[in-house]
């Protein structure tokens, strides 16, 4: 009787280990297979966002990393054939969003005028905060063509020039925060480029 019990205990352990092992192996295999596509799809998304925020540009893009507010921000400098600056695409972020954080790509021309903005990654509330996406509302379009030097990047409730999304003031403020951060980065980049 005792022997039988022991045998079944060994069986328990063996079966459980075997299943866990096979599961681990299978997962590692799938991970290895999907690693490429996952990275590729993330890169494609960023490339598309960069293309959208620098309309009409097709030339050399130089990437640099700039540290601001304790985080590294990737900056894509679009350089014309003669070496002058066409514009800059900044991968900016905000931590004041409703869902904590979202990431934007903001494009500036040589003078600092906002060309376009694009959401890279956001988890704002469907129906409210997700109107920061251009497919859902025109909110993000009001930034295009504005120069943050004279256009106050704050919602009108806070005394700025931006019309907030109805019932999603937090998301709207966060969007302004992210664009402002991008502009600060742009100023640093532009100074460095002209030196």
């Amino acid at each position: 009787m005792a022997q039988k019990k022991e045998a079944s205990l060994i069986k328990l352990v063996v079966v459980l280990t075997a299943i866990a092992l096979v599961a681990g192996l299978a997962l590692t295999g799938v991970y290895a297979l999907t690693k490429g596509p996952i990275e590729l799809s993330q890169k494609e998304k960023k490339d598309k966002a960069l293309h959208d925020v620098l309309p009409g540009f097709s030339g050399n893009i130089a990437d640099t990393v700039i540290s601001i507010d304790g985080e590294d921000v990737t900056v894509h400098k679009a350089i014309n054939a003669d070496g002058s600056l066409f514009g800059v695409g900044v991968e900016t972020f905000t931590k004041k969003a409703f869902a904590g954080r979202f990431d934007l790509m903001v494009g500036f021309d040589d003078d600092g005028v906002i060309l376009n903005t694009e959401v890279i990654k956001a988890g704002e509330t469907p129906g409210l905060g997700d109107k920061i996406n251009k497919s859902k509302s025109d909110f993000a379009k009001q930034f295009n063509g504005q120069d943050p030097a004279e256009y106050k990047l704050q919602v009108s409730k806070d005394g700025g020039d931006v019309d907030a999304i109805t019932a999603a003031t937090i998301s709207s403020r966060a969007y302004c925060d992210a664009v402002q951060r991008a502009y600060n980065v742009f100023k640093i980049v532009k100074e460095a480029h002209h030196e």
């Binding site: 004041k96 409703f98 869902a99 904590g100 003031t169 937090i170």
Partner: peptide, 9 residues
């Protein structure tokens, strides 16, 4: 109704 009471993490 508690929405916007505090900034969320």
């Amino acid at each position: 109704g508690f929405n916007g009471l505090v900034p969320l993490p």
